[in-house]
Design a protein around this nucleic acid. Structure first.
Lengths: 146, 146
DNA sequence: TAAGATTATATCGTGTGCGATGTAAATGTA
DNA sequence: TACATTTACATCGCACACGATATAATCTTA
């Protein structure tokens, strides 16, 4: 790298990552608005649709989020009637998060989101192979940093 | 993609992007702590070190941020004594942001950050070629979405 | 088994992001 | 030149992220 250019925005890796993440999240907004949820709330629901009834910390490990972020978020999801939070009887420290009937049913309405994002130019400029490669690099990076 | 797996976290592109961005930002934290700045504040400084004296909107275009985010952030940078905000005399709508003496000097202390991040495993698992490829895909995506 | 360590969750404070709205300066137009 | 429109910035409200701290339950171990 040429002298003195290390601090240039273009040469950072973190900056385009930060921008791309925000822009792609923003692309979800109109679709998630229809479900009256935010993007992080959508991620929690994805995790629960995959595997219902998880303690808060398990959700956190899945989403790389701590309870200081999750607890208030889960309370909001509970207020919306999408999940329930129940203190575990076996281990009173744990709070088990599970989908409500409504939260479970929301899955049907969310089913179309991935394809809509894919089609919306979220990644249409990249080939399938590039995408897989891209995803693999992201996960490699997460493994390194996580 | 197999039926019913479109909603799985692994198959999303946005999710690993979101996680990787947060984790990489977090990797900067200890380095930026020494300079008493946050990651978005660091980005503003990078932009100013590249090109000083920019109106708020120009900074926003560079960083893909709006004034609702930038104005408070710039005020915090001003409180720290790193930048100055001055109403333009030619166009009284504009506020020109420029580095203070201290803000300018901070560049020296920040110079080591990129290499420290690179070395810290931020991307050590990826070859130089993979990295360039990765960065290119990110920018391609940003162009699509921005 | 009593005391210390660990675990699971919650709370607090600060700093973003961002949609929505407000306001003053500048520009376009009839 | 009046007046509508646009531009540049600021403000407000809400929802994250996250470091730091608190608290109760469980586990360890002497």
């Amino acid at each position: 790298m040429a002298t003195g250019t290390a601090l240039h925005l273009e040469n950072q890796l973190c900056f385009p990552l930060y921008v791309a993440s925000r822009l792609l999240t923003k692309a979800y907004a109109p679709l998630l608005d229809e479900l009256d949820i935010t993007y992080p709330q959508y991620l929690v629901l994805l995790a629960l649709w995959e595997s219902d009834r998880q303690p808060v910390t398990a959700l956190g490990q899945r989403l790389y989020l701590d309870t200081n972020t999750l607890t208030p978020l889960l309370k909001r999801l509970e207020r919306k009637g999408l999940v329930r939070r129940e203190r575990s009887t076996e281990d009173e420290r744990k709070v088990i998060v599970r989908l409500s009937e409504t939260g479970d049913q929301l899955r049907q309405r969310a089913a179309c989101i991935p394809e809509k994002i894919t089609g919306a130019g979220g990644k249409s400029a990249l080939s399938r192979r590039q995408l897989d490669n891209f995803r693999r690099m992201l996960w490699q990076m997460i493994e390194q940093l996580g």
